[in-house]
Amino acid sequence: MAKTLILGATSAIAIETAKILSDRGDALFLVARSPEKLESVRCDLEVRGGKIAGTLSSDLNDFSTHPGLMKKALEALQGLDLVLIAHGTLGDQKACEQDFVLAEKEIRTNFLSCVSLLTLISNKMEQEKSGTIAVISSVAGDRGRQSNYIYGSAKGALNLFLQGLRNRMYSSGVMVLTIKPGFVDTPMTAALKKNFLFAKPDQIGRGIVKAIDRKKDVVYLPCFWWGIMAIIKAIPEKIFKRLKL
């Protein structure tokens, strides 16, 4: 029956996670950019029997809106037990290499907006001495690769930030979960060619809820990505820099 705030609530993984959470009685406050998509997700969850405390359409890249957003969410939920940060973009790496404006936008969306939101959220939870923060990062943040290093570096920075935050929050009893999905078949990856490594968003949703319940620190989803990334991280840089990854 947690009071749950979901940021990026119309992302495919967030939707699947929200279905499970609302099914077991969580009250949800949903934030997403597109008002139409947000409304469609709200209706869907409500027909399924979910309790939606409120919704807010907001561009999370406008950091000045974050304090107002938090205020609205806290009022609607009357408290805060769980936050899922699920917004993000997978930009065009090649375009980002050529144009810093694009690269900066990727870093803002995937890293800085989270720092801004988590500053507000973590201070609130630290005060309350309870709560769970779950953030969707990516396996792409584990090692820089030429095909994806703008997105990867934003997620890598996010991983480090969460690591530090977890360390800080430990004494207050606030859980911080870093979620590292591999390839997931979602609108974000619509342009990628699908292979056997792709997971379905509902599978990732179940994994997220399980990791929250088990109070995990870091989770790879599906779990085999832990093994893949362990190998990728173990390759010496001397060799790695020559690979076309």
């Binding site: 469609s40 027909v47 399924r48 609108p187």
Partner: peptide, 9 residues
């Protein structure tokens, strides 16, 4: 299949 949301019941 991605258009899989309930609208009203």
């Amino acid at each position: 299949r991605g258009m899989n949301r309930f609208i009203y019941f």
